[in-house]
Nucleic acid binder design. Structure first.
Lengths: 230, 230
DNA sequence: TGCAAATGTGAGAGATACTCATGTTTGTGG
DNA sequence: CCACAAACATGAGTATCTCTCACATTTGCA
C-alpha cells in the first residue's frame, strides 16, 4: 500500500512503525503528542471513527506533520499496541523472575493477574486499541505474537519445576493461559466493575487450581499429553 | 450517521440489519448473493479491505442495489455476525436440551466444544467476521451479547443440578466459560491445525474438570462466592 | 393488459487517507 | 556570529472510498 521513503537513519525498521526517526527534541515531543491525542480519540469513539485530520488538529499540528512520523493510520494503532505490549511483557517477566519453586510460581501468578487487571482498569483504552488491531490482518499477528511472548516467559519458568513434562505440552498450556488471561481482562473491563472483579477472580481460581493439582509439576488438566482429539 | 428510509413493511426493525425487506424471490436471492460474496472477500482480505464496489461487482449487481438492502458496510458485517451467532445459539441449546444430570452436562459440554470447533474449522471466516466486528463499538456489543446468551443457556441447565449454589455465581461462571470458549476457538483456528487441536483439548480438560470437581454441583474453582478481590 | 409497487441503476456528492512541492526551524562547523 | 545543510512543518491537492438520488426497469396482481 505504501512505498518506502527511507529515512536518514534507522536502516533496519525493526521495532518501530515510525516513518522518520525524530532526532530533535521538538519532534520527539510531537510524536508523543500525536500518540496521546490518538489514544484519547480511540478511547472516546473507537479507531474506526478516528480521523487523521482530527488527530492532527487535536495535537495542534498539520496533516503533513502527522505523516512525517506515521506512514499511515494503522501505524499509530500499531505503535500504541507495541507500547502496551512491551509494558505487559516487562510486567510478566519481572514477576516471574522472583520465582524459585512451583508454589512461588503459583503466588507470582496470582499477583500477576492482579497487576494485569489493575493495568486494564487504569488504562481501559488498552482494550480499545486491541479492538482496533483486530480489524487489520497484519496487526492481528502482533496480538498473537504477544500471547506467544508471554507464554514463552511463563513456560520457561514452569518447565524448571516440571522436569518430567514435555516442553511442548508446557508451551501450549502456557500460551493458552496467557491468551485467555488477556481475553479475560478485556471481558472484565467491558462489563460493570463488580462483575469484572468476579470474572477475574474466577479465572484466577481456575488457572491456579492447575498449579497445585496432582501430577508432576502441576497443571494436570491443562497438560495432558495423551489427549488427542477424537 | 444515517437517517431512516422507513421500508414498507417491518415496522419494528427488531432482528435484521436490512434496510428494505425483500419480498420478491429475486431480491431474496440477491441478499444471499451479497452476503456470500461479502463473506468470501472478508475471508480473503479482511473487512477493512472489503470495498462496497467490490462486493457489488462480485455479486453481479450495481452499487445502488447493494444499498437497497444494506444501509451501510457495517450492516453487512452485522448480518453475517447475527447469522453465525444464531447458529451457535441453536447448537448450544440443542446439545443442552438433552441433559438430565450433572454427568450428562459434562458429556454434553465435551460434545458441544467439539461441534463448536468443527464449525470454526469448517468456516474459518467466522473468525474474520468476528474480527471485523471488533473495530466498531456497536458491533462489539453484539459479541458480548452472544456470550451472555450462551452463558444463560448453560446456566439454566447448570443451576438445575447445583441447588445450593447462588444463581448469580453460576451465571458469572457460565458467562466466562462461554466467552473463553469463543476465544479459545478463535485462537485455535488462528494457528496450525495440530496446535489448534491441542489448545481446544486443553481448554476442554480445564473446564470439564470443574464439572466433576468437589463441592455441590461441581465447578468448585470457577464458582467461589467467598472469593472477593483483595 | 395495465398499473402500482418493488426493484435496479450508476453518475456523482461528500468525505477521508495520504502526497508533495515548498517554506521554516534547528543544530553546527568555521 | 554567520552560513548552510539537514531536519522539520505545511496544507492544498489527488486518489479513492462510501453512500445518495433521480430516474429506469421489472414484477405481481386486479
Amino acid at each position: 500500500m505504501k512505498q518506502e521513503i527511507s529515512p536518514a537513519a534507522a536502516s533496519a525498521d525493526d521495532e518501530t512503525a515510525l516513518r522518520r526517526t525524530p532526532s530533535q527534541k521538538r519532534s520527539r515531543e510531537r510524536v508523543e503528542q500525536i500518540l496521546a491525542c490518538a489514544t484519547a480519540i480511540i478511547q472516546e469513539k473507537g479507531s474506526d471513527a478516528m480521523r487523521m485530520s482530527e488527530v492532527a488538529e487535536k495535537a495542534g499540528i498539520s496533516i503533513g506533520s502527522l505523516y512525517q512520523y506515521f506512514p499511515d493510520k494503522a501505524a499509530i494503532v500499531r505503535t500504541l499496541a507495541e507500547r502496551y505490549n512491551a509494558v505487559c511483557s516487562e510486567c510478566i517477566a519481572a514477576e516471574l523472575a522472583k520465582v524459585t519453586s512451583l508454589a512461588e510460581l503459583r503466588d507470582a501468578f496470582a499477583v500477576l493477574f492482579d497487576i494485569y487487571y489493575d493495568m486494564f482498569l487504569a488504562e481501559p483504552v488498552m482494550r480499545d486499541i486491541w479492538s482496533a488491531m483486530q480489524a487489520d490482518k497484519a496487526l492481528r499477528e502482533i496480538d498473537l505474537q504477544q500471547s506467544r511472548i508471554g507464554g514463552r516467559l511463563l513456560a520457561d519458568v514452569w518447565a524448571r519445576f516440571a522436569p518430567g513434562t514435555p516442553r511442548e505440552a508446557i508451551d501450549s498450556a502456557a500460551f493458552l493461559i496467557m491468551h485467555l488471561g488477556d481475553c479475560t481482562m478485556r471481558l472484565a473491563v467491558s462489563v460493570e466493575r463488580a462483575e469484572g472483579d468476579q470474572i477475574v477472580e474466577a479465572y484466577k481460581r481456575m488457572i491456579l487450581r492447575d498449579f497445585v493439582a496432582d501430577g508432576p509439576g502441576g497443571g494436570a488438566s491443562l497438560i495432558d499429553i495423551s489427549g488427542v482429539r477424537s
